[in-house]
Amino acid sequence: MKNKIYCEVCLLSFIHKGEVESGQVVVCTICGAELEINSVEPEITAARLTQDPETEIRNRSENFARLRGYTFNEDKELVIEGLLEKNEMFGDFYCPCRIENIPENVCPCLPTRMNEVRKWGHCY
């Protein structure tokens, strides 16, 4: 049983295997965001799970790393700190190393979701 679920963080639909019920928490397989299932009928809808910002971005980055087989380097804490500052000042987890606060730069940013990490050896 495969379900297509729209993720409002990376603005794409991902495939979730197995039954889902409302209230259940699922992880977007594209960006690692944790989503809560709102409704199952007529179609599945999900929304960002409300969590405190630090838990949310730590879980999301750890989910994403696990899904992609990436590991964290020694700058992890500084990047998490920067993401929390961006969230506080600009309202979402925009890449702390970029000035443009646009959807593509919501962490994990579009290039990182598109595997640019393979080329650069690290995220932006």
Partner: peptide
């Protein structure tokens, strides 16, 4: 610098 950027903080 960007106030949030780790590398800027290191510089």
């Amino acid at each position: 610098s960007l106030s949030t950027c780790p590398w800027c903080k290191k510089v």
